[in-house]
Structure formats: structure tokens, C-alpha cells
């Protein structure tokens, strides 16, 4: 590895610390506000840490509804991840292997769909969900989430699959393996890093989605976490402490999953996104 002079190294360490501060400061403040008792007014100038930290906001944020919302979010997000990744893998495989003009055009159209603004298509989709009697069901959200995450997921998987040498499948075909077997036995196992990277991406997008969740669910027992945050925002003001506490609670699961899979996520991107 290249050597750095102590001076350079010191400067780089300084930069790295600076980066850490920029990244973490808002988090720190979120936690600080979440620990502030409701009775302690906000100080001017802002106080970095509450005088009398308390967990009361967390207790009140962790109400029975929260547990329902949490469960809903988990069910919807995990189902979406599973379905999106599967469909994206299949589609991306075709997009990288089939030498047909029409397939190329379809791919372009699928990826273009990513450009549609959600707020412009939500009422027509709502009417369809209504007609299919799917409002207030997990299915409506999962369908919508799978659809909105598919274009990028396909794009990510495609970048990854394009790196896999076709020779392996050709060799398998020579050995008499059908295309399905070649896919499941050769391609699939090699795709793991790409699958993890795509899955994490989809999970993060789905976990925080707001607009569709707001539109397709009206009953309290079907709401997801991001929509549930509105419980702390009234017509006349915001309950900051509880809002921040519930923000922390919402963020923790994805952060945990992410930290756990972080290496594989980066590895997946490394293998996929690189070398065009």
C-alpha cells in the first residue's frame, strides 16, 4: 500500500473526523431531543443535551399502536424485498442474456418508469386498488412497493449479472443442463452479493415509503411506521419529544439490518456497479 507521511496522515484523520461529525451531529440531536422531558422548554441557544434526560418519550412512543405499525412495516417490507428481488433477478437475467431487440426496448421502458412522479399517478392507482377491493390490505402496499422498486432493482441486478461470464452457463449447456437448471445451479449461487445489495436497497426504500402507505390504508390497524409518525403532528403543533423518540425507534431496525449486512452490501455494489 502507498505510504503516507505522518503529516498527511494527520490531516486525513482530521478530515475523517470532520466527516464523522457532519454525519452524526443531526443524529445526536435527534437523540438529545428525544430524551428531553416534555416539561423542559427548548433552550435558546440550543442545548446539546437535555438537563434532565428521561426515557418518558420512548415509553409514550412505544404505545400499542406502535407495535401494530411496526408489525405492518415488517410484513410489508420483507414481502416486498422478497418479491422485488426475485422478479428483478429474473428480469435482469433476461435483459443481460437475451439477444432480442424487443427485450432491450422493454428494459428501457421499465427503467424509464422510474421517472414517473408518484403524486401524479397515485389517484389512478388508488382507483384500481379500490376496484380490486385491495384497500387496507397488505397486498395493496406490497404490489405498489414491488412496482416502484422494480426499475432500480432491475438496474442494480443487471449491472451485477452483466459481470458474470456467460461461459459458465454455456459450459453447463454443453453438459446438457437446460436453461432453467443453468440458471438455478450456476447463476443463482454466484449472484448472492448482488442479491444482498439489491435487497438492502429495496428494504431501505420500502421501510420509509410514505405516500402510498398514506393513501392505501385508512384503518389504524393497517398503518405503517412512517405514516404512524403523524400521530404526533396535530393541527396546531408538533410533539417533538415523542416524534423524535419514535423516529429513533423507526430508524433502529433498518440501521441494525444495515450494519449487519453492510459488508455484503458494499461487496454487492462493488461487483455490480463497477467497470460499466
Amino acid at each position: 500500500m502507498r505510504r503516507q507521511t505522518p503529516r498527511t496522515r494527520f490531516a486525513l484523520m482530521g478530515l475523517q473526523t470532520g466527516l464523522a461529525v457532519i454525519v452524526l451531529l443531526p443524529f445526536f440531536w435527534m437523540i438529545s431531543v428525544s430524551l428531553k422531558p416534555a416539561s423542559e422548554p427548548f433552550a435558546i441557544p440550543a442545548r446539546l443535551w437535555p438537563e434532565d434526560p428521561t426515557l418518558a418519550n420512548y415509553i409514550s412512543a412505544f404505545r400499542p399502536e406502535f407495535q401494530v405499525y411496526f408489525l405492518n412495516s415488517v410484513v410489508v417490507s420483507l414481502s416486498t424485498v422478497a418479491i422485488t428481488v426475485t422478479l428483478a433477478l429474473l428480469a435482469a437475467y433476461v435483459f443481460t442474456r437475451a439477444q432480442m431487440r424487443i427485450v432491450g426496448i422493454i428494459m428501457l421502458l421499465v427503467i424509464l418508469a422510474q421517472m414517473f412522479p408518484a403524486s401524479a399517478i397515485i389517484i389512478p392507482i388508488y382507483r384500481m386498488m379500490r376496484a380490486a377491493d385491495l384497500l387496507n390490505t397488505y397486498a395493496s402496499l406490497i404490489l405498489a412497493y414491488v412496482t416502484i422498486t422494480l426499475p432500480v432493482a432491475i438496474w442494480m441486478m443487471r449491472g451485477f449479472l452483466a459481470r458474470l461470464p456467460v461461459t459458465l452457463e454455456e459450459a453447463a449447456a454443453m453438459d446438457g443442463a437446460g436453461p432453467l437448471r443453468a440458471f438455478f445451479e450456476i447463476v443463482l449461487p454466484l449472484c448472492r452479493p448482488g442479491i444482498v445489495a439489491t435487497a438492502v436497497f429495496v428494504l431501505i426504500v420500502t421501510w420509509q415509503e410514505f405516500l402510498f402507505a398514506l393513501s392505501f390504508t385508512s384503518t389504524r390497524d393497517m398503518r405503517t411506521l412512517p405514516v404512524g409518525m403523524n400521530d404526533f403532528i396535530g393541527q396546531y403543533g408538533i410533539r417533538y419529544g415523542e416524534l423524535m423518540a419514535s423516529s429513533v425507534l423507526i430508524s433502529l431496525p433498518v440501521i441494525a439490518v444495515f450494519l449487519f449486512l453492510q459488508r455484503q452490501f458494499v461487496a454487492g455494489l462493488t461487483a455490480g456497479a463497477v467497470k460499466g
Binding site: A91, L109, V110, I125, T147
Partner: peptide
């Protein structure tokens, strides 16, 4: 994938 994107994105668009 194509059916989903067609039905839930292109059709509403």
C-alpha cells in the same frame, strides 16, 4: 416484472 410495471405505472400514467 413487465406486467406489474405496465399495470401499476404505465396504465395510471
Amino acid at each position: 416484472a413487465v406486467v406489474l410495471v405496465a399495470v401499476l405505472m404505465y396504465y395510471p400514467m
